[in-house]
């Protein structure tokens, strides 16, 4: 394992301090927590927006704290949901009197810990609403399973609810737009290599020199198929096809996100983008806006994901609104 770290079991704490030290004009760390909040929280009258999850997905989630996006991000240990007390600290810190909205990725651990925090916050008299993001079409959704995973589409939800809150929307209005946005976003990822959890010290899984895996999760959870490495065009086709098959995008306007999982050069993301745009054009799907880069990573995993979100005028305006979050571009 080659990493630029000090102690494998202190990476999260040191990272959070490093984030606070990087952007002192914009954010701060809540003392003795792994919570990064906007410098000016609680913003009186504004609904507070809290998200978070396991670490290792940087710039998610702390990079999205800033005016127009998150009020707080809670970082758990690497790939491990944060604990309810940390989430509670975040909720309390950002409540400006009009309640707090939680953006949760759909993993058992995230849902449980955030819900426990919500119960504790409600017991303290804070109104809490939430949305659970489940954009990963690699996973079947059924009432007998835990349902689809939440992956990089979550970043677009952050942007949308953050803009909405900044405009002064109520908890209920934010909940409505979040539900709409989640219903309209789908993603799927693929990996060329594994990541290494610092404390584990070795790759989470193995992929052969000529293998790739379609549908991989951002914690190295397995995908749909493990197969021989294909060309960028074929990969783009496969990913786009899976997303397009899950939701009817025909004739609609979309936001596209091509996300790098950690080690993949941006050059390759643009090559994937070229094909994805072509596919959408051929299907008469109009691209309103494209985001390319590393938005939600999986440590040093090589691979990428493709996300499509169907847009209406409200969502377009919310995506376009300004934000000061350092990692959103």
């Amino acid at each position: 394992m080659k990493k630029i770290i000090n102690n494998a079991n202190e990476v999260v704490q040191e990272m959070v301090e490093g984030i606070a030290a990087a952007y002192p004009d914009a954010v701060k760390q809540l003392p003795e927590t792994s919570v990064i909040v906007r410098n000016d929280v609680p913003v009186k009258g504004k609904v507070g927006i809290v998200s978070g999850g396991g670490s290792g997905h940087e710039p998610a989630h702390a990079g999205y704290v800033g005016k127009g996006m998150l009020d707080a991000a809670v970082s758990g240990e690497v790939f491990t949901s944060p604990t309810p007390d940390q989430v509670l600290e975040a909720i309390k810190a950002v409540d400006g009197g009009n309640g707090v909205f939680l953006v949760i990725k759909n993993y058992t651990g995230d849902v449980i810990n955030f819900e426990m925090a919500a119960e504790l916050a409600e017991a303290e008299g804070i109104d809490v609403e939430q949305v659970v993001v489940n954009d990963d079409v690699a996973v079947e959704d059924s009432s007998f399973t835990t349902g689809r995973r939440g992956i990089v589409g979550t970043v677009l939800i952050h942007k949308i609810v953050g803009s909405m809150a900044e405009k002064g929307a109520t908890l209920k209005e934010i909940k409505a737009v979040a539900d709409k946005a989640v219903a309209n976003v789908r993603s799927i990822g693929m990996a060329l290599t594994s990541c290494i959890v610092p404390e584990a010290g070795k790759p989470s899984f193995e992929l052969g020199e000529n293998e790739m895996e379609i549908g991989i999760g951002i914690h190295g959870e397995p995908g749909i198929e493990r197969e021989s490495l294909k060309s960028s065009n074929e990969i783009a086709e496969r990913l786009a096809e899976k997303v397009l098959r899950d939701l009817d995008y025909s004739g609609s306007e979309v936001a596209v996100m091509i996300n790098g999982l950690g080690a993949t050069p941006e050059m390759e993301l643009f090559i994937v983008n070229k094909k994805v745009q072509q596919i959408l054009k051929d299907k008469d799907i109009h691209v309103y806006r494209t985001y390319i880069g590393e938005f939600m990573t999986s440590l040093e995993m090589a691979g990428c994901s493709v996300t499509l979100m169907k847009l209406d005028d409200e969502l377009k305006a919310l995506l376009d609104a300004d934000t000061a979050a350092p990692a959103f571009r």
Partner: peptide, 12 residues
Amino acid sequence: LISKVGGASGPL
């Protein structure tokens, strides 16, 4: 366990 673990197993 609730405040030091996280993940699924901690709160459960």
